[in-house]
Design a protein around this nucleic acid. Structure first.
Lengths: 193, 193
DNA sequence: ACAATTAAAGAATGATTGTTCTTTAATTAG
DNA sequence: CTAATTAAAGAACAATCATTCTTTAATTGT
């Protein structure tokens, strides 16, 4: 007994996420969001709350779509090394057309120090990435691909830190060809003696 | 034949830099800058131009003060390894009281994709850091501290990428003790066989 | 068919944004 | 001393910010 929603909530959220990803939180105005989502101002507020809540929902959408695509790319690879490489390579795919880095890293840098709710989401996403890396390192060690002497926790942190660096440089550098050697060198610490 | 300026231009610029460093460009309003610089609105505009030009001058100030302090810390060390470690450790000093990362990295992430003038400044600062790393690696190789088989350019990129990661994580993580092992592992690639 | 409900549309809200105008006060060259 | 110059102070600017109000249109259970 009510009027039907004319827009697709997920599609609108996707557009919002893309804009936040390119521009960041503060730089993005509600007017821009209205235009890019194709949804009326009031409908955005009725559906998603306010700008801050919309941003959090965009972060969640990012995790369940982009994050899931990333895991898919990882699982497509056979070897542990291939899977870890896929983790790095996937960043490229999202930065082919436009330099926008990683939404989680961007958000952490922009908002973590003065927005505890969002800082927590960033930490959670980082922690999940580290969990994935840890398991891949473990698998690779068992399979004999990686050195058995490396410490799993430390190496996980090390790989993740390098991944964060790459995600930043995808936004800042115009010489993306310089990044692949960095990745190769990062992964070289996994090699068997 | 004119009235004297009552505020110190460098001191005001220092305060502006600090605020931009903590909050970023977009989040920082002129009103906040007026309060924190202790200078009248109009005087800020008369002296520094507009917000964007003030930000660029704050970036320059950062380079000539913080950047210089960093080089000082590096030169205080005797060995090449010590100097490179100092490069990493210096990030800590500025993040003891407040998590604010590195102004150049923060700025690159926030503004590089949609502000070419600032993107260029970020690239220039990155290039200078890489130049310093390159020279230290070269010195260390000559002194026999580092392996002679490492490629200087690639290793420079690799070290810098790790440094960027650390500078991001200083803003995002609440477990800073996890970062030291990352640095140690990064520097382990320099070791002689 | 009607009443209840909710979405869409458009206009308007007050607050804050970056920037500038006007007035007053201080300084110094002539 | 005075006139010229420039800084400081305060108010004000139009534009944009996030948010909400009001009105109209569509949907569906009864």
């Amino acid at each position: 007994m009510a009027r039907k929603r004319e827009f697709d909530e997920n599609e609108a959220l996707k557009q919002a996420m893309q804009l936040f990803w390119v521009q960041g939180y503060e730089k993005t105005s509600m007017e821009e969001l209205v235009n890019c989502m194709g949804v009326h101002r009031k409908s955005i507020y009725d559906t998603f709350g306010n700008k801050h809540e919309l941003f959090i929902k965009a972060l969640e959408y990012y995790k369940t779509t982009i994050g899931q695509q990333l895991l898919q790319q990882v699982e497509n690879e056979k070897t542990a090394l291939g899977k870890i490489k896929a983790l790095f390579d996937y960043a490229w795919i999202n930065n082919k057309e436009q330099a926008k880095g990683c939404l989680i890293v961007n958000t952490g840098v922009e908002l973590s120090p003065h927005d505890e709710a969002i800082a927590q989401i960033v930490r959670l996403n980082f922690f999940e990435t580290e969990r994935v890396i840890y398991q891949l390192l473990q698998q690779g060690q068992i399979a004999g691909e990686f050195s058995s002497t490396i410490d799993l926790s430390t190496t996980t942190q090390f790989i993740h830190n390098s991944l964060i660096g790459i995600r930043v440089q995808l936004k800042t550098t115009d010489e993306k060809e310089k990044l692949q050697p960095i990745i190769d060198m990062t992964l070289s610490v996994l090699k068997n003696a």
